[in-house]
Simulated scan of single mutants.
Amino acid sequence: MSTTTNQPKNAWQIVATREVMVKLKDKSFVASTLISVMVVLGAILIPYFLNSGGKEYTLATTDSRASSFVTVADAASDEDTSFTATEVADSDAARALVKDGDADAYLAATDNGWEIVFNAEPDNTLINAMTTAITSTVTAENAAAQGVDLATLSAGTQVTTSALSGSENVMLAFMVAFAFAMLFYMSTVFFGIAIANSVVEEKQNRIVEIIATAVPLSQVLAGKVVGNLILAILQIAIYAVVALIGLQVTGTAAEFGWILPSAGWFAVFYIAGFTAIATIWAAVGAMAARTEDVANLSNPVNMVLIAALFSGIYASGTVLKAVSFVPVLSSIAMPRRLLTEDVALWEPLVSLGLTLLAAALLTRLGGRIYRSNIMRGGTSVSWKQALKK
């Protein structure tokens, strides 16, 4: 009787703190986090540094006509790319410059137009720039010679694009949605297995029997879920900060401001989705007799997470809209819709409400399975047996 009255009311906080501290001292957890941080930073910085500094092209020419085309190409190029003409006496001298690497190409006149001579592999950027410069210049000269107003001739030919709905950055939005999906999937699997393994290890070592005399099993379970949720949020927050630092370094942070509202919704749906399934991971640990049993018993959970991953990434149209209201699946699907579509405010609110309701029901189910099997020894319990109890 005295044991019950002496049990701390907020014991889950102690359990949660222990879960966090143990994980933070785990070298494999710290190492995997650091590796992920380097991957995130590398994905942002490496393309930036590879593409930074632009490209300076030098073209060998033998007359002022060819040099003028190079000047036109340079004027039309962006600030990271430049074109410079090196005029020499004859074709042999121009080819020698290209051969020796002192020029990127030789712009030579032919009977029918112009030829760009490279030493080895042609450069498409240089080809496109010079083709545009030559075509625009010669076309304007030919039109003037024929007494044709080129501006009048090309009137009404300009083509622009627009979209009735959705993001203006479709490809980028898909890549961000893909990153959200992978974060949710990998994080829930990683921390879910950590919860299950922690439970089964305490069960194998019979430590849980000692803990249960001082702490109610419901609070032990709550502490494990909350502790791992805190770790998951902390890890994702680190990734977000690193990504922001990388964007600041590359000077592109302002260009990604449109992502922030969807990122906020992703954080909310992530917490709701993780909470919905975390207790089931604890139930898997309670059902297992050994850590080796966790893999087989977690198959139903993994199937749900894989369905969430693939439907959230590849579903479209009506199917995507439908799965964005299915708990757990919505943790990936709804943030993607918010990135790529014009979504009414009531939709994420209803979807979130359904996820929270599912979280409450699954927490109750997982808690019942956990309490029924955590003290059970011998062989593992199947899902069919666990659900019957």
Rank of each mutant, 00 (worst) to 15 (best):
A253E: 04
N205S: 15
Y270P: 01
V208H: 04
A267Q: 13
L244W: 12
E209A: 13
S218C: 10
W258Y: 03
V226P: 03
I259P: 03
Y185E: 08
I236F: 10
L244G: 14
V225E: 00
Y270H: 10
A272L: 12
V226S: 06
L244Y: 12
A254K: 02
S262A: 15
E202T: 01
S187T: 11
E255K: 08
L221W: 04
I245W: 02
L260V: 15
I207F: 11
A212R: 10
Q248A: 14
T250C: 04
I238C: 07
Y270N: 03
V268Y: 13
I211D: 03
K203Y: 11
G264T: 12
I210H: 09
A254F: 04
M186Y: 14
A196D: 05
A243C: 11
Q204Y: 09
F191Y: 08
I245H: 03
I259K: 02
E201D: 14
A253M: 04
A196K: 02
F274K: 00
F269S: 14
F256Q: 12
W258D: 00
L217D: 01
A243D: 09
Q248S: 11
V220A: 10
A240C: 12
P261H: 08
I236H: 06
N205E: 14
A272V: 12
I210E: 13
E202W: 00
L260C: 02
I271S: 03
S218M: 10
F190G: 05
G257C: 06
N197H: 09
G251Y: 02
F269Q: 14
I259W: 07
T213W: 10
N228G: 03
Q235V: 06
L244P: 04
P261K: 07
V189W: 06
F184T: 00
A194G: 03
I236T: 12
A272H: 08
L234E: 02
K203H: 13
V241S: 09
A240D: 09
I236Q: 11
V268C: 12
I259H: 05
I259N: 05
G257I: 06
G251R: 02
A212W: 07
F184L: 10
M186P: 08
E202L: 00
L247M: 15
S218H: 13
Y185I: 07
S218V: 12
S262T: 10
A196Y: 03
I238G: 05
G192S: 12
K203S: 12
I230R: 00
L244D: 07
L231S: 00
T252F: 08
